[in-house]
Design a protein around this nucleic acid. Structure first.
Lengths: 350, 350
DNA sequence: AATTAGCACTCGACAAACTAGAGTGCTAAC
DNA sequence: GTTAGCACTCTAGTTTGTCGAGTGCTAATT
């Protein structure tokens, strides 16, 4: 495959920069005028025809300027784009926005998502991963009231779930404590994927307590574990899409928003993004969901002790300010990792 | 003020029924044709002119049919509308949709909201109320790991919040239990609005435990209480608005969605609705938020032992299928109250 | 051989002009 | 009190024409 020579690259960059800021197809004259390449429009015209043939640009219709194709954006993001430095004001406001007392990891993610959407003017998504590999740290049962108890499950990733159970009123707090201790012995330090029916059966056999009390508690534990494993999706700044002309058409806006409404679709997209890089960029049809094939997605993940505990992404039109999004996301990622450590740092020890 | 005679009422009803189903301004001919009132279009024309003068109808422009005004809808909802009975299929599918094992009240609300939006094809909002009047049932501290403990607060309304605290590693589980017992003695059965700085100061004075441990735990309790009191807003079916022609205009859709995005605006609307009736209907400009002055809101609340623990609403264009919305909401309300009782029935005892 | 100027052509966006149709208000007849 | 008839109004949709930006090609220039 033919490579882009230096001049072609500069022209491509000029076109994409221009298109990102104006949203209008870019013509040869514009390139010649605005960017000082020392070339006439005719020359640029020829180069643009080449770039189109090579698949980096496309034409909405014959007598319009060119717009970047997915391939064009890909090249731009990988090779051409100048990384934008955040100004002091910007870092300051991001830093401030992340300074909130937060007690659970999910809340932190949610907050980060909100910050990103406001800062970038795009829509932001945050998801918690499947937690199959996370480890149970503690299980506790608390008497709340006559006939009621609370079951709490805590994992090494700082996720906490609880569930109320009705129990016979004759159960003494001590009994509950005994059950909790037994559950802790059996289950703590296990990954949740390993917790299954057979273990519960075993527990039910070994733990002989009069009155039907063990079963409902085990059910509650199961329920908590299911909830821990069940990924959550947070969304922010959905209406930001109305700021971008590509969604002026109502049916486009609807398509986009309908994807956001289906949380599991969103989840599967976020989940399928490979996370081999710090920041991942998925351009246009690189994602498989038809409805958002004109959108790009910039994502990153957070981890604690080698375990991914959440990922966050910004989604907007392919004509996205990649530079701004990527640099702010790097910053937020950093900040978020710090916060997570502050919060849970020493809980984890692998 | 002049009252509507029987014929005017029937004509008004015909017009509104028609407009609700077609979304097109209704002309005199249409009324004469579709609804068998035994009157000619000319007569109806005269009556319509009267109805307009009286404020029940309005004309988008001189040579169009009439559309109902807010006042017209109000009369329709209060007096004219035939209550729609849900079919067996419909009740069945609603009943099924509400059958999910759910452990916390908020989840239940969220589920109800989702069901309503799917069933009605409008957007649904659910909010938890301010919980100032709710009563602390239990506070517990759990050791999770060396240097970490979990603080859990439970209220009579079934709301549970927790917060992680870092504590010195030398604190023994027994000490934690002692602290918890002390907190329970002091705080349980108090309404959360009564819990303030001075009580915490008192506790800090009386509860002498070496090592800085009491303070962080109290902070965590404060944090949990703040969270309990902090209302939450759930949203579902936002894209449903695209099904309705009044939002075909992108700026209208944006206005609507921007209100949904501002959770606190939504909250304040839902909160301000008087709940003196089973089902409340707020039509058009009856709500004070400019952006949704062309929308109506149908709401209801759920309570447990006299305390409101959540409210849910459906929001859509003023041209709403009030009948369907109201009847399904009645059903969901019923169902939800049952579920809440099943879940928390005997926790509460006033 | 690469670059540029020049020119005919294409196409979409926009505005002006026109048409069809639905609905009204009014008057006069029933 | 009700209805038929008619002139009038206004919107939505279509047609037509114009403008301008941009292209591709060819021939001249460096």
């Amino acid at each position: 495959m033919m490579l882009l020579d230096d001049r072609k690259q500069r022209i491509l960059q000029a076109i994409i920069d221009d298109y990102i800021s104006t949203a209008e197809p870019v013509g040869s004259r514009t390139v010649a005028r605005k960017h000082e390449l020392g070339l006439s429009s005719a020359t640029i015209r020829n180069e643009m025809a080449d770039l189109e043939e090579m698949g980096y640009l496309s034409q909405p219709h014959t007598s319009a300027g060119r717009i970047p194709s997915d391939k064009g954006y890909r090249f731009y993001v990988d090779k051409l784009m100048k990384v934008r430095e955040l100004s002091a004001d910007e870092t300051e406001s991001l830093r401030k926005a992340m300074e909130v007392r937060i007690s659970e990891v999910n809340q932190l993610l949610k907050q980060a998502s909100s910050v990103m959407s406001r800062f970038t003017n795009y829509t932001s998504v945050a998801v918690t991963p499947q937690m199959k590999k996370s480890v149970i740290k503690a299980i506790q049962t608390l008497p709340i009231d006559t006939g009621k108890a609370l079951v709490v499950v805590v994992t090494n990733a700082g996720v906490i779930r609880n569930s109320i159970v009705k129990i016979s009123e004759s159960i003494l707090p001590d009994t509950l404590t005994r059950i909790a201790n037994f559950l802790n012995d059996k289950l703590s330090n296990m990954t949740i994927e390993k917790v299954d029916k057979s273990i519960f059966n075993e527990i039910e056999r070994e733990l002989v307590i009069p009155g039907k009390v063990v079963k409902p508690i085990l059910d509650a534990v199961t329920h908590c574990i299911k909830q821990i494993d069940c990924p959550e999706v947070y969304l922010d700044g959905a209406i930001n899409i109305f700021n971008h002309p590509e969604f002026r058409d109502i049916s486009k806006a609807k398509e986009f928003l309908s994807v956001l409404d289906e949380k599991y679709v969103l989840y599967s997209i976020m989940d399928s993004v490979s996370n081999d890089r710090l920041i991942n960029v998925l351009i246009g049809a690189e994602n498989k969901v038809e409805e958002i094939k004109d959108c790009s997605l910039v994502t990153t993940t957070y981890s604690l002790g080698g375990m991914t505990i959440g990922s966050i992404g910004v989604i907007g039109p392919t004509r996205m300010e990649y530079s701004k999004v990527i640099s702010s996301m790097k910053f937020i990622r950093e900040k978020l990792n710090q916060e997570i450590n502050k919060l849970l740092g020493d809980v984890d020890e692998d």
